[in-house]
Amino acid sequence: MGVSGCGKSSLGQALGQALGLPLIEGDDFHPAANIEKMHQGIPLTDADRAGWLVALGQALASHAGGAVLTCSALKQAYRDTLRAAVPGLRFVFMQISPQEALRRVEARKDTHFFSSSLVDSQFATLQDPSGEAGVIAVPATEPIAELVRLVRARAPVASA
Rank of each mutant, 00 (worst) to 15 (best):
E25M: 05
G88V: 08
G88L: 01
K8C: 00
R104I: 01
L11W: 12
I42A: 03
E25L: 07
A101G: 02
M94E: 12
V92Q: 08
S62K: 07
S9K: 07
A61S: 07
V68A: 10
M38F: 06
T81L: 07
L102A: 14
W52N: 02
L21V: 05
F29W: 09
V105G: 00
L60C: 13
R103G: 08
A32E: 15
F29V: 01
V105Y: 01
F91T: 02
A84K: 13
L102P: 13
I42Y: 04
D46A: 05
L60I: 04
L82Y: 00
S9V: 08
V86C: 11
G51Q: 11
W52G: 00
L19D: 08
A55T: 12
A59F: 04
I24E: 02
D27W: 06
G66V: 09
G26K: 00
S72T: 00
A55N: 14
P31D: 11
Q76N: 13
C6M: 08
T45W: 03
E106Q: 15
S62Y: 03
G41Y: 13
R90Y: 04
T45F: 06
L11T: 08
P22W: 00
L69V: 09
E36S: 12
Y78P: 09
L19P: 05
I24L: 11
G57Q: 01
A18N: 06
T81F: 04
A32T: 12
E36C: 03
L23Y: 10
Q40E: 13
Q99W: 09
Q17Y: 07
H63A: 07
W52Y: 04
D46R: 00
G88A: 07
G16C: 10
G88I: 04
G41K: 11
G57W: 11
G66Q: 08
K8H: 01
F29L: 09
P43K: 03
I35T: 15
Y78H: 15
K109I: 04
P98R: 04
V92W: 07
L89Y: 07
Q58M: 10
G65A: 09
P98F: 13
R108Q: 12
A84F: 04
Q13K: 14
I24T: 02
L89H: 05
H39S: 15
A47V: 14
Q95Y: 09
A107Y: 09
L89F: 06
A67W: 10
D48N: 02
L56S: 09
H39G: 14
K109L: 04
D46S: 02
L53K: 02
Q76Y: 04
E100G: 11
L89S: 10
K37F: 10
G65W: 04
I24F: 03
T81W: 05
Q40S: 13
